[in-house]
C-alpha cells in the first residue's frame, strides 16, 4: 500500500520527460502531425489514438492505436473522462494494476498545424459562411471520407477527402481557388 502513490507517478514522469525532450513539432512543415513523439509516448504507459468506445457499465475505454484496439479500465479516479468521446483523438495515460491497464488520465490530442497555417475558430467560420463563398472569398473543404460529407457537412463546404487530395493536388478545387488568392479552410471530424 505504501508505495502506491509512487508507482502511479513513475509513468507520468517518464512521459513528461519524453515529451519535453522529444523532437520539435515544427520540424516537418507539410505533415506536422508527426507520429514520432507519440510512438515514444506509447511505450511509456500512454496510448495516443482515436477513442473507439467507452462503456460506463464495464468501466472500459478502447483506443485505436496503429489500427488495433487497446482496452483500458477506468474508475472514479481517472482524470479527464469527459475527453473519452468516441471518435475523438486522445492521449490516455495508464498504469498497470496486476494484469490490468488502468487509465489514470484522458487528455484531448490537439492536432498540430503545419507552418504558416492558422487555426480558424467557430465564430469566424460562421461569419464567413453567412456571407457565402463569393462575398467571403473562401473555399471551405471537408477533408473527411466522402460518405461522411454526403450525410452532413458544414454549409457551403465542398468534399475533398485528404486521401484524394494527396493524389490529385488542388485539381478538385474551384477555379478561383486554384489562383491561390482565396482563403482555403479545411476541416474534418474534430481534433485529429
Amino acid at each position: 500500500m505504501h508505495n502506491k502513490p509512487l508507482r502511479r507517478w513513475i509513468p507520468f514522469l517518464l512521459i513528461t520527460g519524453l515529451l519535453a525532450g522529444g523532437p520539435s513539432l515544427s520540424g516537418s512543415p507539410a505533415f506536422a502531425a508527426d507520429p514520432a513523439p507519440q510512438a515514444a509516448a506509447q511505450d511509456a504507459n500512454a496510448f495516443t489514438g482515436k477513442i473507439t468506445g467507452k462503456s460506463n457499465k464495464a468501466k472500459t475505454i478502447s483506443v485505436e492505436v496503429k489500427g488495433k484496439n487497446e482496452f483500458l479500465k477506468f474508475d472514479d479516479t481517472t482524470k479527464g473522462l469527459e475527453h473519452a468521446v468516441e471518435g475523438e483523438a486522445a492521449i490516455v495515460k495508464f498504469e498497470l494494476r496486476g494484469a490490468d491497464r488502468f487509465a489514470t488520465s484522458v487528455e484531448p490530442k490537439l492536432a498540430t498545424l503545419p507552418e504558416g497555417v492558422a487555426e480558424m475558430k467557430t465564430d469566424e467560420l460562421a461569419k464567413l459562411i453567412a456571407m457565402g463563398p463569393a462575398e467571403g472569398n473562401y473555399v471551405l473543404v471537408d477533408s473527411r471520407p466522402a460518405a461522411r460529407y454526403h450525410e452532413g457537412h458544414i454549409p457551403t463546404a465542398i468534399s475533398l477527402p485528404d486521401t484524394v487530395h494527396v493524389e490529385t493536388g488542388d485539381a478538385y478545387l474551384p477555379g478561383d481557388a486554384r489562383l491561390k488568392k482565396t482563403t482555403l479552410i479545411f476541416y474534418c471530424g474534430g481534433f485529429t
Binding site: P29, A30, F31, A32, A33, V85, G87, E88, L110, A111, T112, L113, P114, E115, G116, V117, A118, E119, M120, K121, T122, L125, V141, S143, R144, G152, H153, I154, L160, D162, H165, V166, G169, D170, A177, K180, K181, T182, T183, L184, I185, F186, Y187, C188, G189, G190, F191, T192
Partner: peptide
C-alpha cells in the same frame, strides 16, 4: 485529416490556408 490537407495546400503555393480544427463536433 484536415491539418495534413492544409499542409499540402500550403506546399502547393496557396497563401491563405486555415484549419477549422474543432471540426464538425464543435460546429454542431
Amino acid at each position: 485529416m484536415s491539418p495534413k490537407s492544409a499542409g499540402l495546400a500550403k506546399k502547393m503555393g496557396h497563401t491563405d490556408v486555415r484549419v477549422f480544427l474543432a471540426g464538425i463536433p464543435a460546429w454542431k
